[in-house]
Design a protein around this nucleic acid. Structure first.
Length: 224
DNA sequence: AAAATAGGGACCGCTA
DNA sequence: TTAGCGGTCCCTATTT
């Protein structure tokens, strides 16, 4: 195993650790958040909640750093996150497997492959389907999460929004890397068509009632 | 003041 | 062949 392979493996371990840690932490937070049924209360509260999530992410990054051993000493926690995200573009340049592509294959093993999606077979996958898939995947809760699910409001993690965008670009098979900026442009197009509404809150969007109902019923059919 | 985020026009690629 | 849809690119404006 050469140095870059060893480094890549370390990143994969760190990424999985982060995901598992955040999954556990965020579950607890959402259980509390679900007590809020009034949308206005939720709108006021989710900034605080998401702040907690971001803090947890930072904490878990630091833990991962400590657990990673001497080889990672040159990287601070932000550096680790950056390295993970940068791994996405490395794959395109090298044609090799990155931590990101490993994550995709994990997802696919879990049953959210393109062919398993509502739009996967025959129809082209649409961005809002893809995002819904991510939102329903607890392993992606550190990137994209409900605030809360009951009203269809979701929010991107400030740290990992580019991760979601990169996954989207990869899923579409884009040659050039997708960025949050470009993906958010596509999301804003949904405002006109009415599938997704932009919430006047940072990195926050909302599925329209009809879209959410459709997505949920498609998901129930898939699970049945 | 700078960085992050949002908005919008023009364009591209795919499909019916 | 072409029109329409669903993004994608890139630039500017606004917010944090």
């Amino acid at each position: 195993m050469n140095t870059s392979q060893a480094y890549q493996t370390d990143l994969e371990v760190i990424l999985e650790f982060l995901e598992e840690h955040c999954r556990q932490e965020t579950r607890g937070l959402w259980e509390n958040a679900d007590f809020h049924t009034n949308q206005q209360i939720v709108a006021d509260d989710y900034g605080i909640l998401s702040h907690h999530v971001d803090s947890l992410q930072l904490l878990s990054s630091t833990k991962a750093h400590q657990a990673a051993g001497p080889k990672e000493n040159a990287l601070d926690s932000a550096g680790i996150r950056d390295s993970v995200i940068q791994g996405m573009s490395v794959e395109e340049a090298t044609g090799g497997k990155s931590p990101l592509s490993e994550h995709v294959s994990l997802e696919e093993r879990a049953g959210s492959s393109p062919s398993a999606t509502p739009a996967g077979r025959g129809k082209k996958l649409r961005l809002f389907h893809f995002l819904f898939e991510m939102l329903e995947d607890p392993g992606m809760a550190h990137c994209l999460y409900w605030v809360p699910a009951s009203v269809g409001v979701f929010r991107f993690s400030s740290t990992y929004k580019e991760h979601v965008a990169a996954l989207w670009g990869q899923r579409k098979g884009n040659r050039r890397p997708m960025t949050y900026q470009k993906m958010s442009r596509a999301l804003r197009n949904y405002t006109r068509s009415g599938e997704i509404i932009k919430v006047r809150k940072k990195l926050t969007y909302q599925f329209s009632g009809a879209t959410l109902t459709t997505l949920r019923s498609q998901q129930r059919m898939k699970n049945a």
